[in-house]
Simulated scan of single mutants.
Amino acid sequence: MSTLKYWVWLSRCAGLDSQLRLALLDRFGSPEEVYYADEGALSLTEGMTRRALEPLTQKDLTDAEKILADCERLGVQLLTLHDAEYPVRLRCIYDPPCLLYLRGRLPAVDELPVIAVVGTRKASPYGLRCAEELAFGLADSGAPVATGLARGIDSAAAQAALRAGGPVLGVLGGGIDVVYPKENGWLYDDVAAAGCLISEYPPGTEPLPGHFPLRNRIISGLSAAVLVVEAPLRSGALITAGTALDQGRDVFAVPGPIYAENSKGCNRLIRDGAGLAAEPWDILREYDFQFPGRLRGGSRPAPEPLEDRPARMPEPPKPALPTLSARAAGLTDDQIALLRALTDQPVSVDDLIDQTQLPARRVLSALTMLEIDQYVTQCSGKRYIRAVALTD
């Protein structure tokens, strides 16, 4: 832990790009040696500028120590560029991150045909269906799926891969504890349980727009290939495809209607030489020999899209909830507010905070007491439903 603070310090020095951090590590051997180097020695590093030199002369470790304390509190692991577990595949890109924050268990990336599945946030029903079927088939065949966990294609791919029982690598543009979009809190938990959440940003970092293009190089850097499912001509998914090509990765794309804006980026990629992907083995056949024994023909069909699933028999009506008098039960105002905000559909803690406008600590305290009294029931992903109906 004592040496990790120097890795955090180096990763937080403003004005340094990944290449300059690598140059410093090559010259001095470790972040600790960089920290104790004098200004004259630092200035001799290849690519050093006056703007980059200034933060390196600031030796306050308070911020680094706070980040380490936050990581310990949140169960976040740190993986440095010099650790044996750091994927060689990622280490060999032009600008690898010197430090990664992890929640969950990182698969043996170098031994697996990880496939990145990316696409537009504003996905069409066609795009969502393709993302689900392809990601399910990839995971079911033994290929872990990497994605950014954004709305649209990313989320659909992650959910389908999890349903297939495969690990998912969720690469984030903010801190691991900052859920974005907010409705994906349960998805973050599921990915961490079955795979790994990955970020180069410390806990508490907001997902700023400038973070996402940098995040994309990690998504492609961890992957053997990138699959673009649906993307207009101006799309972050095409940036990921570009970084993949720069890193020597293969790129595949799903074709779409020539007049559909969301398919123009994919169609252009195919026109320019990307592989056409209509089913998982359009991609995986390229890696069956490279990763012997790792891939298997997916025997299960992908889950049917919602609009194509046969109609189910109507479910029997749910039994009425037992009634509860708030006055007789001696409920607090916070408990009453939460019971009124809850329904028979799971609601996340964040949504309850937004609805009740109560501080987070009071919401968590009240939910704990309500759960002990069996007035609420906790579902997966720290979501809650009411178990009683208030009468006053």
Rank of each mutant, 00 (worst) to 15 (best):
Y259D: 14
G170W: 00
I198E: 03
I372E: 15
W186H: 13
E32V: 11
W7L: 02
L134D: 01
I93G: 05
L197Y: 03
L276G: 00
T3F: 10
N262W: 05
C266K: 08
D190H: 13
F136A: 04
T343F: 05
E307M: 06
E32I: 08
R105E: 14
S18Y: 04
L370W: 00
R163W: 06
V226H: 04
V226S: 04
L172Y: 02
P301W: 07
A143F: 05
D95I: 06
E279S: 15
D189P: 00
R362M: 08
E32G: 08
P209A: 12
L390E: 06
C71Q: 06
S365F: 12
L208G: 01
E39Q: 15
F136M: 06
S365E: 15
G142V: 08
G293M: 10
R151E: 12
S299E: 15
D288H: 12
D140L: 11
M48G: 05
L20I: 07
S199T: 09
A241K: 06
D250W: 10
L284C: 07
V117K: 01
A116G: 02
G40H: 13
E72K: 14
T147Q: 03
N216G: 03
A341F: 09
G175Y: 01
R340M: 11
A139F: 08
E371G: 06
T80H: 02
Y86D: 05
W186I: 06
V229A: 03
I385H: 01
S348W: 04
D350C: 09
L338E: 08
